[in-house]
Design a protein around this nucleic acid. Sequence first.
DNA 1: GTCTATAACCTGATAGAC
DNA 2: GTCTATCAGGTTATAGAC
Lengths: 225, 225
Amino acid sequence: MAEPLDTSTGNTPAAHADTRTNLLDAAEHLFAHEGVDRASLRSITRAAEANLAAVHYHFGSKEALVREVLARRLGPLNERRLRLLDEAERDGDNPRLEAIVGAFVLPALEMVQRERGGHAFARFVCRTFSEPDEAFRDLVLDQFREVVARFSNAFERALPGLPREELFWRFHFTVGSMVHTAGLGFLAYQLSDGLCDPEDIEGVGERLIGFLCGGLRAKAVGHEA
Amino acid sequence: MAEPLDTSTGNTPAAHADTRTNLLDAAEHLFAHEGVDRASLRSITRAAEANLAAVHYHFGSKEALVREVLARRLGPLNERRLRLLDEAERDGDNPRLEAIVGAFVLPALEMVQRERGGHAFARFVCRTFSEPDEAFRDLVLDQFREVVARFSNAFERALPGLPREELFWRFHFTVGSMVHTAGLGFLAYQLSDGLCDPEDIEGVGERLIGFLCGGLRAKAVGHEA
DNA sequence: GTCTATAACCTGATAGAC
DNA sequence: GTCTATCAGGTTATAGAC
């Protein structure tokens, strides 16, 4: 009997994966590469060397499976962000802006490059963000709520005097650059004719942090008043 | 007989839309709101008050319909970008960075806010970017190729001394913020608890341009050398 | 927990009348 | 150009044996 295709996170060293894990791994892989709608339960169970009914036994429905696939990686990712922010704030009462931005963007870039299937997963999340299906979007957003609260607070203290509205917009722009880079870094490679190497996460991270800090520190444009 | 649902661009004043146009309008609306896969030809033709066979008569296939929907708005949008860049470059041999960035991001923000269905279309494009289906992605990328060439050139002249690799990355980050703002501005509203108003395109545009110019002008981090 | 078989339904595409 | 009818195949979900 052939070993089931290992598409697991790579963090747990192939713990004699059970059917449930196999299903999650196969689903993640296929959702990422074909899209949630195109990836049928049949193709997922085939890849997981399981049975069609197994999905309904373990998860209840296709939608619940999607939910599980998203939560499995997003939880740890955002926990890591918060841990890095804790560290940055422990080092000094007023951490450098670079450290805060780094705590926000580096875990994502690292996941994409270092975890197995990270790249595909990032693209999957990227798409889910702009998904019309509110249920999935809210799921992703809920995973981010604490992160947004903690980081916008940190930004506020690191950028005193910046109006809150301006600050939230800049956070929004930051998220945009981060998501686009984590999920679609290969576009930079394509559009620069191979000049940009999206796999060099140290380089990309450094550049991204530099760019974002420049934008976050820009002189606020005066709103008439 | 009820008038077909008007989801047209709004640029042509309801020119007694023919079946073909009705199909494009309905398809755009449904692709944006339900996703390409979920939007069946049946629901599209029902909304367009046309017949299932009409799609195959006018376009040949569902894929060709998707292609047409994308090209119909992306073409004019990118033409407008290039026209604005022309204007900026005519004003002075070395236009201000703000003018270049504005020529790139403002047409998108304006389309989203001012054209009927613009918001939904932007989200649709957003999703298509991260679509696994290479055919659609390449279609979008092809529409952008001239824009990327012209603008990266303009950026290069406006930011002398910046290594080309760094420049392309910053362009990439710029695209990320722009796309995320044009397609998902409502996230800023949600995550800021209503503080950010994504419909105020003058305000958003000004803030986005300020942020991006700050990032583009940031001191380049030294790569060891 | 894992399987087979099947129910109930939807899909894109097309032939051919008008 | 527009329609109806239909084909061939896919989908999720579930009942019930093991």
